[in-house]
């Protein structure tokens, strides 16, 4: 794939994060631990698919080569996906799913909060709507971290394991590469390293409430933004893109 203009690349990253996590969460539909949880997870997935549609649509518009949100979602391969590694991690058990949501939604809420002040009005508008949604996601995930952490022995052990599994992907959330550094200096993109302190405080607060401590530090696992993903993404795409790939050119 030819290189996208920086702004399109940025919108694509925001869209890919939402799309891939929405896809993961929708795998739970019909299989969650309780009916109420099923509805909550579907709700979050729905919000994320909506955000993805907006961000990918914008990326296509900026690129101006006739690709719409669907073309971007269904016709790219792994190397051209730019989501962070955290969101593509498999669901695992409910604790692992919650750990992923907890770490990501707090990041997303801070990120969208800052993005509402972007000098690009289109990004700001999408963020303004999305920030309300992700604030709810962050709260829901935090509540579950507290419940599971300070619940039974089993739930506690699972919550610890879930956080431990996901922790190595946290640092990638806050990396600002050359593309984003330039956009951030123009007031378009979010200065992500600047969000880290607030994120740490939020996470520590909830962990304290859950009577948990931070997982052991882990060397950051990076690469998602450049298309170097975990083994899991290819499988996710092969499922998600099946119809579009099997019947090229069809409209649905």
């Amino acid at each position: 794939m030819a290189k996208l203009p920086p702004l399109a690349q940025y919108a694509l990253r925001l869209g890919d994060d939402a799309l891939i996590l929405g896809q993961r969460l929708s795998e739970w539909c019909g299989h969650a631990p309780a009916l109420e949880i099923d509805l909550s997870l579907a709700n979050i997935a729905l919000d994320l698919v909506g955000q993805a549609t907006h961000f990918l649509g914008l990326a296509g518009e900026i690129e101006a080569k006739g690709r719409d949100a669907d073309a971007l979602a269904f016709k790219r391969d792994v190397l051209d996906f730019s989501n962070c590694l955290l969101v593509e991690q498999p669901n695992g058990d409910f604790a692992r799913t919650i750990a992923r949501q907890f770490l990501f939604s707090h990041f997303q809420e801070l990120q969208f909060g800052a993005l509402t002040g972007s000098t690009d009005p289109r990004l700001a508008a999408i963020a303004a709507k999305a920030v309300k949604e992700v604030a709810y996601h962050a709260r829901l995930a935090s509540d579950w971290v507290a419940r599971l952490g300070d619940g039974t022995d089993e739930s506690r052990a699972r919550m610890i394991a879930g956080l431990d599994w996901m922790w190595r992907f946290v640092d990638e959330l806050f990396v600002l590469d050359a593309i984003e550094t330039k956009l951030a200096s123009q007031g378009i993109a979010v200065d992500k390293p600047a969000l880290r302190a607030a994120w740490d405080a939020r996470i520590d607060g909830v962990l304290a409430e859950a009577t948990l401590s931070r997982p052991a530090p882990h060397r950051p696992v990076l690469g998602g933004r450049e298309g170097h993903h975990s083994e899991h993404l290819g499988h996710l795409l092969s499922e998600m893109q099946f119809l579009q790939r099997a019947y090229p050119g069809a409209t649905w």
């Binding site: 799309l19 896809q23 539909c29 009916l35 729905l46 698919v49 549609t53 119809l243």
Partner: peptide, 21 residues
């Protein structure tokens, strides 16, 4: 849901199945 052929169809189906729940 995970194989819906467009983002719009995916969102509609998710909302629909959520309604059933």
């Amino acid at each position: 849901i995970t194989r819906a052929p467009s983002l719009r169809r995916k969102a509609i189906l998710l909302a629909k199945v959520q309604d059933e729940g």
